[in-house]
Design a protein around this nucleic acid. Structure first.
Length: 436
RNA sequence: GGCCCUAUCGUCUAACGGUUAGGACAUCGGCUUUUCAAGCCGGUAAUCCGGGUUCGAUUCCCGGUAGGGUCACCA
């Protein structure tokens, strides 16, 4: 209260793995806080003791740390039960809430007590930073339940009390909470808490145009981590679903994101999440990495027996994320670098060239390559030597295809010069001779 | 169904009354040393519909339609 420092929060309930849509909310709340030199609070909403699980809480923390969304304060709602109780008692005493004896909803049928909010049944209007003026009538909400009993507060009460106690100035959350807002404002007025500024984010939709959800296949963020995405790319890519800086620039570092972020430019309509574009963001962020860093990562994602730095350049231009390195290896696209390929001889033939002609061309290639000194056996020299032969032939494919195929045994592979230079003179010659 | 919100290329979006409606992803085509990848160049592709307001609507207003969210002793 001493100053008007911005305080935002991310308040997940640990009842399941959180997906990208959830983390986008965290990203916006974080960016906004950092942008305004404020603080960012992580609050675990675990008032539902039955469903809350430690593993989910751990997963949230791991994910936030990985993304670099550092929070200035952390707590669980379950640690604040005394505060909730305090306000509950206060409300009951002041008449804005009451204890009601009712039959339990489960099939036990026993009579138990609930705490209900005394709804004044009025219109509640609030200004939303994204949606503008929103007005709702609270009549049909009735006297909604705010606690099971004094020691078991429920969502609305807990949220209001905790936001108040933590001095939250901006509630940035998903649009699925708009209809909860009037209820929470009512409670704020009852306990004498100020109404924070609200910003309800449009939802992130799946390819089915429905709210992203684990049930419909949305993956936990940690899955993206495991697939070898860069956290900066996720940050950048997810910030761009539902927000844009108003310029054509799309690749932003964390720092740039903080600087450029603005709630006023957040979209009003929901956005369908596009994984292909996320991969593109990731590729762009890989490109931002220093060469050594890229090499280090590619090498660590390669299987034990394939960790060869010479392979890095050809892998690099074929991947969007580190996990693709592993996939390439598993698909057998790299095997020929380590052992002689096996293939059917007729695959060496380029179009309708006669087999004898292919053999003849291969021999010429061998001759040209033999003339190269072992120490000059690099991509550039190989290319010069081979191209000289190829151009004499009139059809480059009649030479280049069989050479490439003899070296790789694959329909699709890097070019023959690159392969030869990685294989080295001896191995290259041996494979060509075998093909003749 | 009630309440709330939304509506520009397939997708993410720019435009804050006047633009050949721009960019990115995807897609298609071309070029580069055969194939693949990368790179470069180029193409296809959008203002949901109907009324207003205005000299002029993607833009403002109304209605329709469509989509989404939400209606717990979950959060």
């Amino acid at each position: 209260m001493a100053d008007n420092k911005v305080v935002t929060r991310f308040a997940p309930s640990p009842t399941g793995f959180l997906h990208l849509g959830n983390y986008r909310t965290a990203i916006f709340a974080y960016l906004y806080a950092k942008k305004h030199d404020g603080s960012f609070v992580l609050r675990i909403e675990d008032t539902d003791r039955e469903r809350s699980k430690k593993e989910y809480e751990d997963n949230v923390i791991e994910s936030l740390n990985w993304l670099g969304l550092s929070y200035d304060k952390f707590y669980r709602q379950s640690e604040h039960l005394d505060k909730h109780k305090f306000y509950l008692e206060k409300m009951i005493k002041e008449g804005s809430a009451y204890v009601s004896k009712e039959q339990a909803k489960d099939d036990s049928g026993e009579i138990k007590e609930l705490v209900r909010f005394k709804n004044p049944n009025i219109d509640v209007a609030f200004k939303d930073e994204i949606k503008g003026e929103v007005m709702m009538n609270t009549k049909d909400l009735g006297d909604f339940v705010i606690a099971r009993n004094l020691n078991e507060p429920l969502f609305h009460l807990a949220v209001v009390v905790d936001d108040f106690e933590a001095g939250i100035t901006h509630v940035i959350r998903g649009e699925d909470h708009v209809s909860n807002t009037p209820r929470q404002i009512l409670i704020q007025r009852a306990i004498g808490a100020p109404t924070p500024i609200y910003a309800h984010l449009p939802l992130v939709l799946g390819p089915d145009k429905l709210k992203l959800s684990k049930r419909r296949g949305a993956l936990p963020l940690t899955e993206y981590k495991n697939r070898g995405f860069l956290p900066e790319a996720i940050l950048n890519g997810m910030a761009f679903v539902g927000w844009n800086p108003g310029t054509d620039k799309e690749i932003f570092t964390r720092k740039e994101l903080i600087k450029a972020f603005d709630l006023a430019r957040v979209q009003k309509s929901p956005a369908i999440f596009n994984e292909e574009k996320l991969e593109w963001f990731n590729k762009e962020h890989i490109n931002l990495l220093p060469k050594e860093e890229i090499e280090k990562n590619i090498l660590t994602w390669l299987p034990e027996n394939m960790k060869n730095p010479k392979l890095v350049p050809i892998i690099f231009e074929r991947i969007n994320k580190w996990g693709d390195v592993k996939d390439m290896a598993e698909r057998g696209e790299l095997g020929f670098f380590f052992k002689q390929p096996e293939y059917k001889k007729e695959k060496l033939i380029f179009k309708n060239t006669a087999p004898e002609k292919i053999s003849e061309n291969l021999k010429q290639a061998i001759k040209a390559l033999e003339n190269l000194d072992e120490k000059d056996f690099n991509q550039e020299n190989i290319k010069i030597a081979l191209m000289a032969v190829a151009d004499k032939l009139g059809s480059r494919g009649e030479l280049l295809h069989p050479v490439r195929f003899a070296l790789s045994g694959l329909d699709k592979s890097p070019d023959p010069f690159t392969i030869a230079s990685i294989l080295g003179k001896n191995e290259t010659l041996s494979r060509l001779q075998k093909a003749v």
